[in-house]
Design a protein around this nucleic acid. Sequence first.
DNA 1: TTGTAAGCGTTATCAC
DNA 2: GTGATAACGCTTACAA
Lengths: 330, 330
Amino acid sequence: MPVTIRDVARQAGVSVKTVSRVINGDGPVREATRQRVQAVIEALHYRPNAVARSLVTRRTMALGLLIADVINPFFPEVVRGVEDAAKVAGYTVLLGNTDEDPVQEERYLALMQERQVDGLVLSGSRAEEEVLRQAADSGFWMALINRAVHHPRILSILVDNADATAQATSYLIQKGHRRIAYLLGPSRAEAARLRFEGYRRALREHGIPFRPAYVVQEIPRIEGGRKAMRTLLALPSPPTAVVAYNDLMAIGAIEAVQEAGGRVPDDVAVIGFDDILLAAYTIPPLTTVRVPKYEMGYKAAAALIDTIKIGRTSPRVVRFKGKIVVRGSA
Amino acid sequence: MPVTIRDVARQAGVSVKTVSRVINGDGPVREATRQRVQAVIEALHYRPNAVARSLVTRRTMALGLLIADVINPFFPEVVRGVEDAAKVAGYTVLLGNTDEDPVQEERYLALMQERQVDGLVLSGSRAEEEVLRQAADSGFWMALINRAVHHPRILSILVDNADATAQATSYLIQKGHRRIAYLLGPSRAEAARLRFEGYRRALREHGIPFRPAYVVQEIPRIEGGRKAMRTLLALPSPPTAVVAYNDLMAIGAIEAVQEAGGRVPDDVAVIGFDDILLAAYTIPPLTTVRVPKYEMGYKAAAALIDTIKIGRTSPRVVRFKGKIVVRGSA
DNA sequence: TTGTAAGCGTTATCAC
DNA sequence: GTGATAACGCTTACAA
């Protein structure tokens, strides 16, 4: 039988309310009483039951965290950022992997609501906007990383996807490239759309015509990048440079070029996005856009917690800047 | 105001118990009643409050998961394994990073108990054995990954650290190496002791004298490996091969050799442990011992859940085999 | 097949 | 300063 607040009260010869006061350090308690209660708490190894507390306070001091997949090297840093911010504020994190599957994400969303988490951080979210809106309407606080949804209970933590990709593309153009391809990510992802937009904008600004054949969409993994690059290489006039939706695809692209007997960056320059750990270790090391993943996770959780505390989102959107990291692939 | 089981009952013109029966699909309910209740549940968007349920059932259907650090490439796969097994069984995962710090780990342990998780999975655990024992004594179920503690409520999920390292060392010996160094991990880690033991055993079995100067202890990161290797390289008679506690140290060692103008594996052969994603992408790609991280995480959670269900650990220890993956570094 | 009442372990209300 | 007592939203006897 676990020891309860009642046991402590009885043992200390006080009421439960007094014990509660001692635990939470709120209401007034005579010092002598406090010490006596404290002693009993330690003697009995009493631990307050957070479940019972949550039932009455209506707060679980827990945050849900839904990510696409921890094994995907983009997410661990986000997770760590969220966890650190949560810890600082006394919150616990409930983790779920959604595999970029709207159905799984929605299922988890419902689960998190049942579990009464005080707020939810979503990274790699692919659920229908309507579903997110509905959850928010029902009183749920959310922070979206790399996705924007305009709603008074939804916070968005963004990186300047379009600008950063435009910069990366311009960088290639300045290096003399004209035949620049784009490896497109999943169309459900807002980030994918925005990055692609940045690519097109840079082309436009430099007066380089957009060629649909230079855009290949694939799954945002190494295999996807490899496959996409093979397609591009088979073109009558293959590109001399490639901008990828993310590092994983970029790495796959490098592999495909090398498999085909080409050299990177001499034959084909490759530039990625995210700056995952692996990026520094490929051959050649990947030139990419660094996304402040940890910081974004931290900020998402910290801002969400603030939001919950004050009862409104302010600010509604936080923007981070991506930064080109020039290494060997472009 | 959130809608409760009472609201549903009132609206459907039945008792709360009947609604409860419909939700949980237990007791007998007339089909017509069931449908009526179900309709009201949907109309009202009713979601049972898991906190209230947990308070009375005394089960949270939640597992705690304490790891050293999600950013350390060893852990994401473990996390994913745990999460997948938990999901299958209807459990939720509460995540915590302990940074291999006993103090933080113990703090989390207490927190998880307050939160009433049904069981706890620990990977990269560094808490005092006494602390774990005490938690177990107080009725807490635990699964330890890569650490053995003999206790009726503690499950251990192990990889054959000693054997696998002995194999790796023997592999080097068979390749003709005689001056083989060892990069030792954190002495608090049981895995570190066991792997080191395997190294010594292999040496002994092949009649190669053990040289203390060939053992360097460092933090189990890339920097640690680099530092340790530099020390070894400065020896009057430096080793021609190195076995590392983990891949991160091995990667650092490779870097140190190359920095010093040496070639891997020609001048110094390097062999790691774990087989993290990065291992396949270093130059040269790392020869290492593959540890079934995902499987160990999955098994830990699955076995823990079984254990909770039947009320006893059976079996008490699960052993996995490491397997040498020969790539380019040895 | 359905309902009533008690109680899970806390905190909140309001009196003393 | 301190203590009864009523919630919180649900499940579990036990009745009906």
